[in-house]
Amino acid sequence: MSTQTSIEWTERTWNPAVGCSKVSPGCAHCYAEVMARRLKAMQVAGYEKGFELTLLPKRLQEPLLRKTPTVYFVNSMSDMFHEEIPDDYIRQVFDVIRRAPQHTFQVLTKRAERMAAFFQDYKPSKNAWLGVTVEDRRYGVPRIDALRRVPAAIRFLSVEPLLEDLGEIDLTGIHWVIVGGESGPKARPMQQEWVLNIKRQCEAQGAAFFFKQWGGWGIDGKKRGKKENGRLLMGRTWDEVPASVVSTEMHSLTR
């Protein structure tokens, strides 16, 4: 089912598949895995197998039933381009996206090469925003090149959890960069200098910059709850979205 979410850069989640497997350091303390186990214990439909990859075709039509323009994060509990999700099923998901032009759909993956290969034969509709996770230099940064090969109206990076200084990055063709620290009891710390380095490059290269959160470690280097640490950077929030597509529903994210 689609549900409201507290994720700062979206409005609702839509999970036509749930479950995943780890591919890089950003997966180490996966929030979705913890949540899936909890939902299984609560006997919530769709989580009978916990965090094992599960297709849920009965959920495919859900966005078509909602008329109010909405920003959806697709597969917040999985990865749309997981190797166990068939191409035909991915195509069905993007066909639904095409049939719901009133909505904006944000699709985020760590399997950037498969995403790039899929879109060689399928052109995404303009309301499909496609992104990759960039948590470090070794695994994350190379995904940006794969994302650039995708013919998306909006390409975005989720730099969360930011695990190290990314150094110089090429943001050519990237419209939006979301940065955040890791949360949870095993959160790894994020340094302010790493964030400011990304912010500087966004400004220089014309990408919108969105600072999501400090996470489990504050700007002062102390560990505490993510709500206590907040999301202020340089004394203010940073909620930029791609200027060329700011719409009524996207304005709601920046209020």
Score class of each variant (00 low, 15 high):
Phe118Trp: 10
Arg111Thr: 08
Gly215Cys: 00
Ser78Arg: 06
Lys49Tyr: 10
Arg12Glu: 11
His103Pro: 09
Thr54Trp: 03
Met77Lys: 09
Arg255Ala: 13
Arg231Tyr: 03
Glu113Arg: 15
Ile85Met: 10
Arg12Gly: 02
Trp238Asn: 05
Ile154Ser: 08
His251Ile: 12
Gln4Ile: 10
Ser247Gln: 11
Arg200Trp: 04
Gln92Thr: 04
Trp129Glu: 09
Ile169Phe: 06
Gln92Trp: 02
Met77Ile: 05
Pro161Phe: 00
Tyr122Cys: 13
Leu53Trp: 04
Asn229Met: 00
Ala17Thr: 15
Gln120Glu: 15
Val246Phe: 06
Glu8Asp: 03
Met42Leu: 15
Pro185Glu: 04
Ile7Asp: 02
Arg200Met: 07
Gly50Glu: 04
Leu233His: 04
Ile169Thr: 09
Tyr122Asn: 09
Arg137Gly: 10
Thr5Gly: 03
Tyr89Trp: 03
Gly235Cys: 10
Phe94Ile: 09
Lys222Pro: 01
Ser125Leu: 06
Pro151Gln: 13
Cys27Lys: 05
Val74Leu: 08
Met250Ala: 13
Asp121His: 15
Thr104Val: 14
Met115Asn: 13
Val96Ala: 05
Glu168His: 09
Met115Cys: 15
Lys186Arg: 15
Lys110Ser: 03
Met35Lys: 14
Lys67Leu: 13
Leu166Gly: 08
Ala17Glu: 05
Glu48Ser: 11
Gln92Ser: 13
Asn15Met: 02
Ile90Trp: 03
Val71Phe: 11
Ser183Tyr: 01
Cys27Ala: 09
Gln43Ser: 14
Trp238Ser: 03
Met115Gln: 14
Arg155His: 13
Leu196Ser: 06
Val71Trp: 05
Pro57His: 04
Trp176Thr: 13
Asp121Ile: 08
Ala41Trp: 01
Pro16Trp: 02
Ser252Asn: 13
Thr13Asn: 10
Ala207Cys: 14
Leu39Met: 11
Ile219His: 07
Phe119Lys: 13
Ala152Gln: 11
Ala153Ser: 14
